[in-house]
Each structure stands twice: as C-alpha cells, then as structure tokens.
Simulated assay, not measured.
Amino acid sequence: MTTRETAPLRARAEIDLAALRANVRTLRAHAPAAALMAVVKSDAYGHGAIPCARAAVEAGATWLGTATPEEALALRAAGLPGRIMCWLWVPGGPWREAIDADIDLGVSGLWALREVVEAAAGAGAPARVQLKADTGLGRNGCQPEDWPGLVAEALRAEAAGLVRVTGLWSHLACADEPGHPSIEAQLALFRQMVAYAERQGVRPEVRHIANSPATLTLPDSHFDLVRTGIAVYGISPSPELGVPADFGLRPVMTLAASLALVKHVPGGHGVSYGHHYVTPGATTLGLVPVGYADGIPRHASGSGPVLIGGKWRTVAGRIAMDQFVVDLGGDEPGAGAEAVLFGPGDRGEPTAEDWAKAAGTIAYEIVTRIGTRVPRVYVKVNNQQDGEANR
C-alpha cells in the first residue's frame, strides 16, 4: 500500500478504511434482516475498488456490486470472494467470462437473456441471472407489460439447465425524498412483479430494491438484500434529511494538496484566466496544484472552499486544468503547507457536500470525479476491530 510518508506531495486522497468498515456495520444495523451489498462501481465511487471491497467484506458485506462487467471481473481477478453482481450490459459483452468467474448477471430484457443463454451453452455451466423490473425509474429494467415474456423465457432456460434465476430486483427513483408518492407506487409494483414471477415458478435467492437512502429511511423496502453505495463511503444520500453523522456515517475520503507557491501581489492584480477575480488590495496568493484535470469542478470557480492554516479560504478566480489560486489575505503559510479541500469536517475543513453546493451538484459527483493523477493513500488498512492506530 502507498503510505502517507511516501505519497507524492502535490496532492493525495486519503482513504480511511476503518471509517468504511464502520459505515458498513452501521448500514447492516439499519437493515438487520437483510444481506448487504457494498456497491463499488466507478472505482468505489473514486475511493479505490479493491481496497474498499476488501474492507467492506471484512465488515460483513456478503455481496459486492458493480455497474460494468469489467469492474466485476477485476474484483474477481483480485481474489475477492463471495457474491459479485453487475448490471450494466451492452450487446456482445463478456458474458462467458462473467459466467466463468461466477458473477451474478443483471438482465433487463430478452436480448440480454438470449446472449446469456448462448454464453452459458458455450461455458457448459449455468449462468446466474437476476431479472430486473422497471418499476418506475425508467432506466434499465423490464417494463411490466414485457415481464411475463422475460420470466417465461428465463424459466425455460432454467429448465434447460442454462441459467439459475438467483434474484428479482429493481431500483427506486426518489428514495432520497421520503414521502414522495413514487416510492410507495414502486414498492407496490415491485411486489406485484415479484409475486407474478414466483407464481410462475421463479425461486429467487434474493429480492432487492433498496439503495442507500432506502436502507437508511425505508425499512419496508429492505426485502432480502440492500444495495448500499454512497453511504458506504460516509456521504449522506439525502442531505436534506441530515448530514452523515445524523445517520451514523463518517466520510471516508480526505482530499488535500500542498501549496506550490505563496507570493505577495499588489491590489488590483488579476487572478487566473479571464481575471474574474481582482485583488481588492495588497495581499498574498496561494497556489493549490490541483485542477479540473484532477476532478476539481470548474463550476466551483470563485466559490470552492479550502482549509489552509486553520482558516477557510475560497477559490479566487477560475479553476484551471492543473491548479487554482486562493487569496490568503496577507497570511503567509510556506510553500508545501497543507490545503484541505474536503474531509470529514473534524478539523473544520470543508466536506464533499460543501463542494457540491459550491459547484451546484451532488457529493456523489465530487468524490467520484477525483482523477487518477491523485494517489489514493490508504490508512487504517488492517482490521483490528477498528481500534487500530496503523496508517
């Protein structure tokens, strides 16, 4: 593992695996009768899929979830045990490789089921498939009127020994808005579609529809399995209802950089492209060596918060590809001083949610977009019931 001491000084994303394990345990406690899937798609929402998947399994996650098959195959190649599911397929995908790797395959339509059946025939082993119902989100999933046909063909393939229908599932559109009328409508339709499939002879191992916000706020949605994504990483899936601590969660990522330059400038000095910021008087400027190529949102130009020397600063002018500037107001931290863009907030630093507000987006995007030029530094790697002090 990369350590704090050997990480490049320009920038780092520190990933607290003890916090991740604690988040998984908290989420399990919210849904004690259901199994828990830790979703590690998009490189674990920018946190690093393999280390985060291992930590989640250590904390009791019995399933891992990804969007793409390539992500799922990478987990298996890294030796991750247990059940792994992926659901975002296109025609011609690596079905055979996924079957060989013992991965559960999300199926939303007949074209996908037929490609699975063909791959299973070639593999000489049944594929594990999970039929997805579109109960109202309008993305992936089988429409109710097409559900009987998909169920019937899946049962025929199961009778032929080519597939095993291991799951029936769906996804909520507005779980982060408790009380939204779509929630009960989707749950009712999901129950109907599950009941139909089971009457026809489907015997799923798991039925699931709950995402992070539903896991935290909608017990009726838990069924046999909950799929937790952003909450695993300690970010509130519904900021309107509470900050992470209100749900017993702790943010896992801290993003920091080292000041590349501190200099004196006179009043009236333009800062960064377009001179959208001009110094109101003589001051000091600090150069933070990360930019939109590292995932810092350009939309937060002039508003993104940073903690330097114990004080909140704001991005001065435009965020550039590799760097941005803050007005230090005459303070003179040295080059190399730490600039904390976001973290749990323990030291008064901004959070990912603060950056989301500054950029007009959601915290999911803030952490997921941090690019590969920023090394992930894993701390509290060993699981000693999370009383560990190792970094």
Results as ranks from 00 to 15, higher is better:
64 L>C: 11
38 A>D: 05
68 T>P: 07
68 T>D: 03
53 A>E: 02
46 G>N: 11
55 A>K: 08
64 L>R: 09
52 C>V: 02
32 P>R: 12
40 V>W: 00
40 V>G: 00
67 A>T: 06
32 P>M: 09
47 H>C: 14
59 A>C: 07
53 A>S: 13
32 P>N: 06
56 A>T: 10
57 V>M: 15
78 A>K: 03
51 P>Q: 05
75 L>C: 13
67 A>C: 11
45 Y>K: 06
72 A>W: 06
70 E>H: 14
36 L>E: 01
54 R>F: 00
55 A>R: 11
48 G>D: 08
65 G>E: 05
78 A>I: 07
70 E>F: 10
48 G>N: 09
59 A>N: 04
56 A>F: 06
68 T>A: 15
51 P>L: 05
71 E>S: 11
68 T>F: 15
42 S>Q: 12
66 T>C: 15
38 A>F: 02
39 V>W: 10
61 A>I: 04
47 H>W: 07
47 H>Q: 14
39 V>A: 13
62 T>C: 01
56 A>V: 03
43 D>F: 05
66 T>I: 05
61 A>P: 05
72 A>M: 05
68 T>W: 14
54 R>C: 00
65 G>R: 04
34 A>N: 04
72 A>L: 07
75 L>A: 13
40 V>A: 01
70 E>T: 13
65 G>F: 02
39 V>I: 15
49 A>I: 02
76 R>S: 09
40 V>L: 01
61 A>Q: 10
48 G>Q: 07
69 P>N: 09
78 A>E: 09
59 A>Q: 08
50 I>T: 07
65 G>K: 03
74 A>Q: 15
